[in-house]
Design a protein around this nucleic acid. Structure first.
Lengths: 214, 214
DNA sequence: TAATGTGAATCGTTTCACAGCG
DNA sequence: CGCTGTGAAACGATTCACATTA
């Protein structure tokens, strides 16, 4: 039931950690630091050093015994193994404040996510938004997704329109959906769904804070 | 190492599912549906029915054998057990597009999250934003957090300022941080940190899509 | 000596299987 | 009979412990 698709048999939690390690390697390179140990990585992220060594071992990687990892080699190993070179065509649906924020989130393109379309049901809005991204009315979602071979759709519409939006994306042949609406979407098995849910995070945090009081 | 604080010994994954179930109960009530089975909940969320029954059992709850759960009772049981009545004082740091989107995210107040302050380092920006929330320059973070007894800080500043922002919140006595910047923050053990990271989600999705091709 | 790499043990979660009950 | 509730088994991830090597 639970999404447990693996990449080359790397467990999902390891994948997540490796992505963070990858980005930290970029930061280290900028700072001209060329070596890093599992214990340093552990301290930075709050993981255990054992976990990190195991994660890195999934790369089929051999570090330097006694002397940590070469930052550049580590970064490249993650890049190759997880195929981070892949470029993805992305669209955003819902151009309210959140959608606009995403439209202007430049780190996405740096990591290979090309925003090639934006959609909103309010046609007037499409004219007032200043962006290089091509904008379309919501009823064209299916056609544009198909025509532009868009793989990932980011849903930033109000909760009550989220399922309908997802359906249109799916009809257009979308392969992955990132959903910001605080609602459970129904998608076919071959479509990957990820939810980003600020409200749920706030509620969870509140529960954890209550628990701290004990 | 990993954050595994428990609430009344309810495992973290169960807490997350219960929150989703809680919100779905609200939806069912609106639709005037008064009974729901574990298998229906399973279908909606893509969990297994076994998991859901186990989750609900943590509530010390007794459903109706042979006839599913009473929606209202289930909702209330979750509400009571997880103490969702708690009201939290929240602030947002960084009033760019994302910060503004959060400032206007009305579901937060409905769930008991009062946004009582917004901060930005650009003082001119503070005057142009139209909102009922009290706005302050960033250098006042520590004082305002202390004075207003703010418990949760939502960081929506660029990555390079995120750690500095977190430090100020911590000095003010913040108890939880929700971080939208794609960077690992260092916080003391008694502060709960949750990251919301669109870039990481996109990258992870890309990896999963690659894997689908096999 | 200070680090990596990795089987084995441990721990936590999910799934299974079925008893219990209206 | 259908669905809940729950111990027990299975599974997966993390931690442990230690062999390994520049």
């Amino acid at each position: 039931m639970k999404q447990n698709i693996k990449n080359n048999n790397i467990p999902m939690p390891s994948l997540e950690r490796l992505l963070n390690i990858y980005r930290f390697c970029e930061y280290l390179e900028e700072k001209e630091i060329y070596s890093v140990s599992s214990s340093r990585l552990a301290r930075v992220f709050g993981y255990s050093a054992d976990s990190i060594r195991k994660d890195i071992s999934f790369l089929g990687w051999i570090g330097n015994f006694g002397a940590g990892y070469d930052v550049k080699k580590l970064k490249n190993a993650i890049y190759e193994k997880l195929r981070l070179n892949t470029i993805r065509r992305v669209c955003i649906i819902g151009l309210g404040r959140l959608g606009n924020a995403i439209l202007n989130y430049n780190e996405l393109i740096e990591k290979g996510f090309m925003i090639v379309a934006g959609f909103d049901s309010n046609i007037n809005k499409l004219e007032t938004i200043k962006t290089n991204v091509e904008l379309f009315p919501a009823y064209e979602i299916k056609d544009v997704v198909k025509r532009k071979a868009i793989e990932i759709g980011i849903i930033a519409v109000p909760a009550e329109y989220a399922q309908e939006t997802a359906n249109r994306l799916i009809e257009g042949g979308i392969r992955g959906i990132i959903n910001f609406a605080p609602i459970a979407l129904k998608v076919p098995e071959n479509v990957i769904l990820k939810n980003i849910d600020l409200l749920a995070e706030c509620m969870l945090m509140s529960i954890l804070l209550n628990n701290d009081n004990k």
